[in-house]
Computed example of a mutant assay.
Amino acid sequence: MHRFLHRFVMKASAGPLFPAAANLQSRRAEAHNVEMFDWNDLRYLLAVAREGSTLAAARVLGVNQSTVHRRLVELERRVGFALVTRHATGYRLTSLGEALLPSAERVEAEISLLQNQIRAYGNDLVGVIHLTCPEPLVSRLVGSSYLALFHEKHPGLKIEFVMSDRYLDLGKGEADVALRSGEPDDETLVGRKIADSIWAVYASKSYLQHHGRPERVADLGQHMLVGFDGMLVNHRAAKWLSAVAPGARIAARNNSVLGVLHAVKSGVGIAPLPTTIADMEDDLVQVLPPVHDLARGWYLLTRADLRQTSRISSFFDFTFRHLDLIRPVLMG
């Protein structure tokens, strides 16, 4: 239901969020109305807790900031106690708000499951398939005969890409289908391997002209490298680079594979990259062959309940019948 999963750290409150809420603690007689509050208002409480401000919560929910204020005021009125307070650094939950947060999250998860079940009930070959995959693949998929042929065979279905710098949660309905590299670790998902993910070491032509070419992996320690940062610090490529060239100079870091690609193209250093995207760049040279330790499989995944629907089943069946079309997109 939400694009962001990071929870804002909550501490003891210092004061009420809204002027109208200042007297809520003294109006405990209204607590009998708790069973009458609108469950939908929990979305606003969760968004403020996660984002730390009503403005950020409004952006996530796609509403006006005033709507967030109004719905929280109404929720507090129904509950009879203050749930959120305002601080100089943002918004925080009161002690009661913190206590209710796990239950609110469970309600959110159950509503998401209910929505997924309702969506899965339809069996017509019409509608949208929300597909998540690494950003570098989008342009390759859009321009491929694989996707063009799918739309030709199933004109009532539309592929809509859902992009994120993290793995989206299919179980919460953030996407219907995922194209991912690496062995799946979510037992609730079903699917199969459809291709191999291959990585090699690349440098730009300009870098090689000024610094020479490494002849073997051991030579990387003598070269300037482009490192992985942010959410990629634990990526297998980052760990491999640290292991084979622990003393190398890191000339630049980036928190996305595309960012690392552009840094290597600029000539600042060398880095391992997926052959899928790096081989397409005329300015890049594969200076070392594919690295076995970085090889993984490409998997097509979805939830078990969605796999049984005609909409998703048609996409999976088409893909399995046309692996000769999808593999060039994934492997270069």
Score class of each variant (00 low, 15 high):
271 A>P: 01
303 R>L: 14
216 R>K: 13
41 D>F: 03
286 Q>L: 04
299 Y>P: 01
277 I>W: 12
33 N>F: 10
195 A>D: 07
59 R>H: 10
287 V>F: 01
138 V>P: 05
176 D>L: 07
185 D>R: 13
295 A>S: 10
11 K>A: 05
137 L>V: 10
192 R>E: 15
239 K>Q: 13
14 A>G: 15
274 P>I: 04
222 Q>W: 07
10 M>W: 06
13 S>T: 12
6 H>P: 00
147 L>P: 09
306 L>W: 13
28 R>N: 05
304 A>M: 03
327 R>D: 10
51 E>W: 02
187 E>P: 00
58 A>K: 06
267 G>R: 11
119 R>K: 11
88 A>K: 14
19 P>V: 00
325 L>E: 06
164 S>F: 00
300 L>A: 04
251 A>N: 08
320 F>D: 14
16 P>N: 12
20 A>W: 05
322 H>M: 06
154 H>Y: 15
18 F>Q: 11
7 R>G: 11
220 L>D: 05
195 A>K: 01
268 V>R: 00
103 S>F: 13
214 P>K: 12
258 L>F: 11
41 D>C: 03
68 V>G: 05
146 Y>T: 07
131 L>H: 01
12 A>P: 03
74 E>C: 09
181 S>M: 13
114 L>G: 00
278 A>P: 00
51 E>Y: 08
231 M>E: 15
190 V>F: 09
206 S>G: 11
10 M>R: 12
126 V>H: 09
13 S>Q: 09
63 V>R: 02
249 R>E: 09
31 A>Q: 13
167 Y>C: 00
146 Y>R: 11
71 R>Y: 09
157 L>C: 07
325 L>A: 02
66 S>A: 14
188 T>N: 13
19 P>W: 00
270 I>N: 04
255 N>L: 03
184 P>L: 10
96 L>S: 13
150 F>M: 05
2 H>L: 15
14 A>T: 14
99 A>H: 12
189 L>M: 13
95 S>R: 11
178 A>C: 05
116 N>W: 03
115 Q>W: 08
257 V>Y: 01
219 D>Q: 06
282 D>E: 15
260 V>G: 07
177 V>Y: 01
105 E>K: 06
322 H>T: 05
26 S>C: 05
34 V>K: 10
180 R>Q: 14
179 L>T: 01
190 V>I: 15
52 G>E: 02
280 M>D: 14
184 P>H: 12
300 L>S: 04
184 P>R: 14
326 I>M: 08
296 R>W: 04
252 A>T: 04
24 L>Y: 15
8 F>I: 07
323 L>I: 15
136 P>D: 04
130 H>V: 05
330 L>G: 03
163 M>W: 03
144 S>T: 09
197 S>I: 01
241 L>D: 01
302 T>I: 06
199 W>D: 04
194 I>P: 02
224 M>L: 15
280 M>Y: 09
274 P>Y: 02
25 Q>M: 08
202 Y>A: 08
272 P>S: 04
46 L>Q: 08
298 W>S: 02
3 R>D: 11
234 N>S: 08
286 Q>M: 14
288 L>T: 03
97 G>M: 05
144 S>A: 09
137 L>E: 07
130 H>G: 04
47 A>M: 00
324 D>E: 14
152 E>M: 09
191 G>T: 11
291 V>K: 02
50 R>E: 11
232 L>V: 07
319 T>K: 08
252 A>S: 12
